[in-house]
Protein backbone atom coordinates (compact mmCIF):
# COMPACT_ATOMS: atom_id res chain seq x y z
CA UNK A 1 0.00 0.00 0.00
CA UNK A 2 1.53 3.28 -1.09
CA UNK A 3 0.62 6.66 0.35
CA UNK A 4 1.57 10.20 -0.48
CA UNK A 5 1.48 13.41 1.49
CA UNK A 6 1.49 16.88 -0.06
CA UNK A 7 2.50 19.80 2.16
CA UNK A 8 2.09 23.29 0.67
CA UNK A 9 3.81 26.36 2.08
CA UNK A 10 3.31 29.45 -0.04
CA UNK A 11 4.82 28.79 -3.45
CA UNK A 12 6.50 25.59 -2.27
CA UNK A 13 5.14 22.05 -2.22
CA UNK A 14 6.73 18.98 -0.66
CA UNK A 15 5.54 15.53 -1.70
CA UNK A 16 6.46 12.62 0.51
CA UNK A 17 6.04 9.20 -1.07
CA UNK A 18 5.77 6.14 1.14
CA UNK A 19 5.79 2.88 -0.82
CA UNK A 20 5.93 3.01 -4.59
CA UNK A 21 5.87 5.85 -7.09
CA UNK A 22 4.26 3.72 -9.77
CA UNK A 23 1.21 4.00 -11.98
CA UNK A 24 -1.49 4.10 -9.27
CA UNK A 25 0.24 6.81 -7.25
CA UNK A 26 1.27 8.76 -10.36
CA UNK A 27 -2.35 8.83 -11.51
CA UNK A 28 -3.47 10.06 -8.10
CA UNK A 29 -0.77 12.72 -7.80
CA UNK A 30 -0.90 14.17 -11.32
CA UNK A 31 -4.16 16.21 -10.93
CA UNK A 32 -3.22 17.28 -7.39
CA UNK A 33 0.13 18.58 -8.57
CA UNK A 34 -1.42 20.27 -11.57
CA UNK A 35 -3.78 22.07 -9.20
CA UNK A 36 -0.86 23.14 -6.99
CA UNK A 37 0.98 24.51 -10.03
CA UNK A 38 -2.14 26.33 -11.21
CA UNK A 39 -2.39 27.91 -7.75
CA UNK A 40 1.09 29.40 -8.13
CA UNK A 41 3.41 26.75 -6.75
CA UNK A 42 6.89 27.24 -8.25
CA UNK A 43 9.13 24.97 -6.14
CA UNK A 44 8.37 21.27 -5.75
CA UNK A 45 10.38 18.78 -3.71
CA UNK A 46 9.78 15.04 -3.94
CA UNK A 47 10.95 13.18 -0.83
CA UNK A 48 11.61 9.56 -1.87
CA UNK A 49 13.23 8.55 1.41
CA UNK A 50 10.50 6.00 2.05
CA UNK A 51 9.91 5.00 -1.57
CA UNK A 52 10.80 1.44 -2.53
CA UNK A 53 10.15 1.62 -6.25
CA UNK A 54 9.80 4.16 -9.07
CA UNK A 55 8.72 2.85 -12.47
CA UNK A 56 8.32 4.53 -15.86
CA UNK A 57 4.97 6.05 -14.79
CA UNK A 58 6.66 7.65 -11.77
CA UNK A 59 9.52 8.88 -13.95
CA UNK A 60 6.92 10.28 -16.36
CA UNK A 61 5.24 12.16 -13.52
CA UNK A 62 8.54 13.71 -12.40
CA UNK A 63 9.31 14.83 -15.95
CA UNK A 64 5.79 16.25 -16.42
CA UNK A 65 6.14 18.25 -13.20
CA UNK A 66 9.61 19.42 -14.23
CA UNK A 67 8.31 20.50 -17.66
CA UNK A 68 5.40 22.45 -16.11
CA UNK A 69 7.64 24.14 -13.54
CA UNK A 70 10.33 24.99 -16.09
CA UNK A 71 7.79 26.75 -18.30
CA UNK A 72 6.92 28.97 -15.30
CA UNK A 73 10.49 29.53 -14.14
CA UNK A 74 10.07 27.11 -11.24
CA UNK A 75 12.20 24.24 -9.97
CA UNK A 76 11.85 20.56 -9.09
CA UNK A 77 14.14 18.69 -6.70
CA UNK A 78 14.06 14.99 -5.83
CA UNK A 79 15.74 14.02 -2.57
CA UNK A 80 16.55 11.09 -0.28
CA UNK A 81 16.81 8.71 -3.23
CA UNK A 82 17.95 5.13 -2.54
CA UNK A 83 21.02 3.78 -4.31
CA UNK A 84 18.96 1.54 -6.60
CA UNK A 85 16.53 4.28 -7.61
CA UNK A 86 19.48 6.69 -8.05
CA UNK A 87 21.06 4.21 -10.46
CA UNK A 88 17.78 4.03 -12.40
CA UNK A 89 17.51 7.83 -12.52
CA UNK A 90 21.11 8.22 -13.66
CA UNK A 91 20.68 5.57 -16.32
CA UNK A 92 17.57 7.38 -17.55
CA UNK A 93 19.54 10.67 -17.27
CA UNK A 94 16.94 12.35 -15.06
CA UNK A 95 19.70 13.97 -13.02
CA UNK A 96 20.58 16.06 -16.08
CA UNK A 97 17.19 17.76 -15.94
CA UNK A 98 16.70 18.43 -12.24
CA UNK A 99 18.65 17.92 -9.00
CA UNK A 100 18.50 14.41 -7.59
CA UNK A 101 20.01 13.88 -4.13
CA UNK A 102 20.89 10.54 -2.58
CA UNK A 103 19.75 9.33 0.82
Amino acid sequence: MSTTQIEKNGTQARITVQGDLTVAVARELRPQLQQALNEGCTAVVFDLGRAGMVDSSGIGLLIAVHNSLKSKGGTLKVEKVSAEIMQLFKTMRLNRHFPVEAQ
Partner: peptide, 15 residues
Protein backbone atom coordinates in the same frame (compact mmCIF):
# COMPACT_ATOMS: atom_id res chain seq x y z
CA UNK B 1 13.10 12.34 -25.86
CA UNK B 2 14.40 13.85 -22.61
CA UNK B 3 11.28 16.02 -22.18
CA UNK B 4 8.79 13.20 -22.94
CA UNK B 5 6.73 12.15 -19.93
CA UNK B 6 6.03 8.64 -21.28
CA UNK B 7 7.62 5.96 -23.45
CA UNK B 8 10.38 4.68 -21.14
CA UNK B 9 8.94 1.25 -20.32
CA UNK B 10 10.69 -0.60 -23.13
CA UNK B 11 13.96 1.14 -22.29
CA UNK B 12 13.66 -0.18 -18.75
CA UNK B 13 13.05 -3.70 -20.11
CA UNK B 14 16.24 -3.47 -22.15
CA UNK B 15 18.26 -2.05 -19.27
Amino acid sequence: RPQDDSGRGLSIYRL
